[in-house]
Design a protein around this nucleic acid. Sequence first.
DNA 1: ACCTGAACACCGTTCAAGT
DNA 2: ACCTGAACACCGTTCAAGT
Lengths: 189, 189
Amino acid sequence: MVDGITRADITGAALVLLTNGGLHALAMRRIAAELDVQQSALYWHFDNKQQLLAAVADLVVARVEATNARKWQNRILGLGSRLRDELLRYPDGAELVATAIAFRLGAGRPHQLFTAELTRAGMGDDDARVAASVFVHFVVGYTTDEQQHHQAAELGAIDRLDVATGRFDQGLRLIVAGAEAQIATLDAT
Amino acid sequence: MVDGITRADITGAALVLLTNGGLHALAMRRIAAELDVQQSALYWHFDNKQQLLAAVADLVVARVEATNARKWQNRILGLGSRLRDELLRYPDGAELVATAIAFRLGAGRPHQLFTAELTRAGMGDDDARVAASVFVHFVVGYTTDEQQHHQAAELGAIDRLDVATGRFDQGLRLIVAGAEAQIATLDAT
DNA sequence: ACCTGAACACCGTTCAAGT
DNA sequence: ACCTGAACACCGTTCAAGT
């Protein structure tokens, strides 16, 4: 007989359901059905649904990676748009990651990547972490809005299509300018 | 006999429930029970729960107001911490507002207030709106994390207490620096 | 115009019991 | 160690019918 179910099986099945039906489809019963298992079986592998969703959020941000641009400003911009792209790959991807981050349960990867870039740019560890959280909050928050609004429009709940595109880069550049100013005052000391 | 129930009655009762039990207590059945009404009665006043929650989110941010500091930088900082304070007044206040903003269903007040300050500071309407969204995403995102984490710690789900306090102002100042830089380049033109 | 009563189609979580 | 079966305590939404 075959082995039992693993955590990877569960999060994998959940990711498939997320892809096809969004957060709405991520019900314990549905995930269990996808694996031909009783819903209570999932609770042997995860304490609760929130922990399971956090593990799925980790998968969503797993492919976010640093770029190899020469200027740190461009690496930050690349990281931001790469993160946005990955969140947009799945319906409700941004909201899922936002919740996981809020509960400190997963999806720490974006924050780590931004922090690394900012320390390389010359910031102290502490300042880099603060700046990284500004970037992450903006990217995840902006993308959540964008995705939510886009999905609502598809359902016909909203008709006017916002001209929100392009505004993402503008916002990122504003924060980069703030980081530049802070690094400049550090160098002046 | 007394008149029927109004939308204000409903959002008022919901705000009481939010205060006492957080987002978890904001169930249609519970709100209806608070008003001695059947749950289906609420659907005559609101299309769905999401619309109702958006109206409650409007109440949460209703008392956010501009400060009268002389420098626009300080007015922005004051607006940010004032918004955070109001979100922290209710359990899950930040998450409620974040969701309403994402669905473009309410809580537009913070964005309007930030935009107004930034145009007064010398930004164009378009740039001011983008910068305002950076501020709002940071304040709401940061406060959601903070509140979520705080509530999890109260339930014993998390033991270590993050040293996140003070980081809020640092983050706000970083964005202000970015706005300053942008206004400076405008003035130079 | 405004609300009731009742149903429909779902949820997350627990827990004794099985193998 | 890993899962079943069944229950518990909930949800949001709809809709005919009442007044």
